[in-house]
């Protein structure tokens, strides 16, 4: 999907024209304040068909989980083909009030709220915040099974390496795109994050980053 002349003057020195990979999982990385959230926000405004989950989400009333999800489902045109509630283990929470849930539980509910809208494009800003390893792993599997175009901001380079089909790097007022193999290189990442980053390879051939 071609995105033309996306203007974000405070972050990028010129309007961006780039390709949003369809039905792929694209991970956005970059320093704090580089403009990742601004990019996602601008994309959400450009693509009315997208569902967007910002970093911070607040409930302003006494609302139960099932009421929140019912609002999200109002946007869906068809019955869900994937059991989102089961994947994120939402069923036991359905009758609970949002205010009584832990941060991680709330994040799972917000993710379910966005995904149950069944939009062709999903934009997630730091969706892993508060999620334990089990749900981080489940989320990637769930996003793949939904067969939609996903753009998500993450800070975990190992997660990006394991799960991404495509990587966007926001750095120095530019957006760079490539495959994880191309973009997740020691020297490049060390320059992007302005800190030495090393990549290790285990005896089983697994690659991982540390600082």
């Amino acid at each position: 999907m071609q995105i033309n002349a996306l203007a974000m003057p405070r972050v990028f020195n010129q309007p961006l024209t780039f390709n949003l990979p369809e039905k792929k999982l694209t991970v956005v990385i970059g320093q704090n304040g580089a403009g990742k959230s601004t990019l996602l926000n601008a994309l959400a405004r450009r693509l009315p068909e997208a569902a967007y989950l910002p970093q911070k989400n607040q409930i302003y009333d006494d609302m139960r989980v099932k009421e929140l999800l019912a609002l999200g489902q109002q946007r869906a045109k068809n019955a869900p083909t994937v059991d989102i509630l089961a994947a994120l283990a939402i069923e036991p929470l359905l009758s609970q009030r949002m205010a009584t849930l832990s941060g991680g539980q709330q994040q799972r509910v917000w993710l379910a709220f966005v995904l149950c809208q069944q939009t062709p494009v999903v934009l997630l800003d730091e969706p892993l915040t508060g999620l334990d390893l089990r749900y981080q792993s489940r989320l990637a599997g769930l996003l793949r099974s939904l067969n939609v175009s996903v753009v998500m901001v993450v800070h975990d380079l190992n997660y990006a390496q394991c799960e991404a089909d495509w990587v966007w790097v926001v750095h120095d007022q530019q957006l760079m795109a490539g495959t994880p193999g191309d973009m997740l290189q020691e020297n490049f990442l060390s320059e992007v994050f302005n800190t030495p980053i090393r990549q290790h390879i285990t005896t089983e051939g697994m690659r991982y980053f540390d600082v």
């Binding site: 959400a44 569902a51 967007y52 910002p54 989400n57 607040q58 409930i59 302003y60 009333d61 609302m63 009421e67 929140l68 609002l71 999200g72 109002q74 946007r75 709220f113 809208q117």
Partner: peptide, 15 residues
């Protein structure tokens, strides 16, 4: 009235 429990952004996204 229930829509106002959501942040403005989500309300707009729900059309």
């Amino acid at each position: 009235l229930t829509f106002f429990a959501l942040p403005q952004w989500h309300v707009a996204q729900l059309g």
